[in-house]
Computed example of a mutant assay.
Amino acid sequence: MADTHKAGAFDIRNVIGGLLAIYGVILTLMGLFGDPETEKTGGVNANLWAGLGLLVVGLGFIAWSRIRPIVVPEHVEPVGDDPTRPAPKKRPRKGH
């Protein structure tokens, strides 16, 4: 079996999950300790419920990245001539 390692912190699911969880904590704290302003939201503490929802989704992303990590192979074969890939554009040389 080839040598492999996990994407770890570079897995985009960790970044998204972390950001959502941070915003979820902030909104949950605002819902608990701030002015709920329920008259604007029809009697619902919107900050609290949105914060709890963001926490659940953010922790779900982090759990997903832990349960099914992205495995990065140590060695990747270079791509050969692929007719479906466009060739790089050549820049004209100055002075020629």
Rank of each mutant, 00 (worst) to 15 (best):
M1V: 13
A2R: 10
A2L: 15
H5S: 13
H5T: 12
K6E: 08
A7N: 04
A7V: 03
A7K: 14
G8D: 14
F10M: 11
F10S: 13
D11W: 08
I12E: 04
R13K: 12
R13D: 00
R13I: 04
V15I: 14
V15Y: 12
V15D: 00
I16M: 14
G17I: 00
L20P: 00
A21T: 13
I22L: 13
I22D: 02
G24A: 02
V25Q: 00
V25Y: 00
I26R: 05
I26S: 06
L27P: 00
L27F: 14
L27I: 01
L29I: 15
G31F: 03
G34F: 04
D35T: 14
P36L: 04
E37V: 06
E39T: 13
K40D: 13
G42S: 12
N45R: 12
A46L: 11
A46R: 06
N47Q: 12
W49E: 02
W49T: 02
W49V: 11
W49H: 10
A50L: 10
A50I: 10
L52F: 08
L52M: 14
L54A: 09
V56R: 04
V57D: 01
G58S: 06
G58I: 01
G58W: 01
G58D: 01
G58A: 06
L59F: 12
L59A: 11
L59H: 01
G60N: 06
G60I: 06
I62V: 07
A63I: 10
W64Q: 07
R66I: 05
R66C: 02
I67P: 00
I70Y: 10
I70M: 15
V71I: 10
V71R: 15
V71A: 13
P73A: 13
P73T: 05
E74F: 12
V76E: 13
E77F: 07
P78Y: 02
G80Q: 04
D81M: 08
D82L: 09
D82R: 05
D82F: 07
P83I: 03
T84W: 05
P86F: 06
A87C: 03
A87E: 14
P88S: 03
K89I: 11
K89R: 15
P92M: 07
R93S: 09
R93L: 12
R93Y: 06
K94Y: 06
K94W: 11
K94M: 13
H96C: 07
